[in-house]
Amino acid sequence: MFRVIGLYLISFLFFLAGVGHFVMDGFFIEAMPEWVPFRPFIVYVSGIVEIALAISLLYKPTRSRAGIWTTLFLLLVFPVNVYMAFFPAQYDVPAYALWLRLPIQFVLIWWVLKVTKP
């Protein structure tokens, strides 16, 4: 039962994060270093990817692969979280929250793998 609740919860969180890329696009664009090209495009595509992953996590035939892709996605966005932690003055978020977010990323990876293993 906890596995099912965890699955729906992580899927919901990813769906919300994906929608957030469109609703709060300015925040996500500013989260990336200025030298990164096509920042708005990357933000919108990553939002679409998060929504697609959220849906794929719920569909049993795609769940296991979606867990792997979600893990890869979390690893790919990790450098942005590190960048934000090193430059907290750019964000309207307490610096400790940005540093706390780094280990939480690995908890999310564990969580995704736990609820999607066959």
Rank of each mutant, 00 (worst) to 15 (best):
T71C: 07
A52W: 03
Y8K: 07
L58H: 07
L57G: 00
T70D: 09
M1V: 12
G18T: 04
Y96N: 10
Y96Q: 11
R3V: 07
T71S: 14
G18N: 07
Y44M: 09
L113P: 00
L9S: 12
Q90H: 10
V82G: 01
P103T: 08
P118Q: 15
L72W: 09
E50Y: 07
V80R: 05
G20D: 10
Y83R: 13
P88H: 09
K60W: 15
Y8I: 02
M24C: 10
R3G: 01
F41C: 02
L53C: 07
L108Y: 11
E50F: 06
L74N: 01
W111F: 12
G47Q: 08
I104S: 09
F15L: 14
K117Y: 08
T70W: 11
E50I: 11
V107R: 03
V4M: 11
L57A: 01
P103W: 12
K60Y: 12
P103Q: 15
R63T: 02
R63D: 00
I5S: 01
F78W: 05
I68F: 10
F15G: 02
W111L: 13
W35G: 00
P79K: 09
P33I: 11
L13K: 01
A89W: 11
V45S: 06
Y8A: 06
E34N: 06
E34V: 12
T71H: 04
L74G: 03
R101G: 14
I10L: 04
W110Y: 15
F28R: 00
R65Q: 11
D25N: 13
I29D: 12
E50R: 10
I48R: 01
A31P: 04
P79Q: 14
T116D: 04
E30P: 03
F22Y: 13
T71F: 13
E50W: 08
F78I: 06
V23K: 12
K114Q: 14
V112Y: 01
L58I: 13
A54D: 04
V93P: 06
M32T: 04
I48G: 06
V80C: 02
S64T: 09
F78H: 03
W35A: 08
I55E: 06
V45L: 15
T70N: 06
F73Q: 12
L7R: 04
F38C: 13
L108M: 15
V115D: 01
R63S: 05
S46T: 15
K114M: 12
L13V: 13
L53Q: 05
F73T: 11
A95L: 05
T116E: 04
L13P: 00
P79N: 07
P103S: 14
A97F: 15
R3D: 01
A89K: 14
F38E: 14
D25Q: 10
M84D: 05
G47S: 11
I42K: 09
M84L: 09
V19P: 02
P103I: 13
R63H: 03
M1P: 05
V77S: 09
Y96F: 14
F12K: 07
F38A: 15
I104G: 10
P61C: 11
R3M: 09
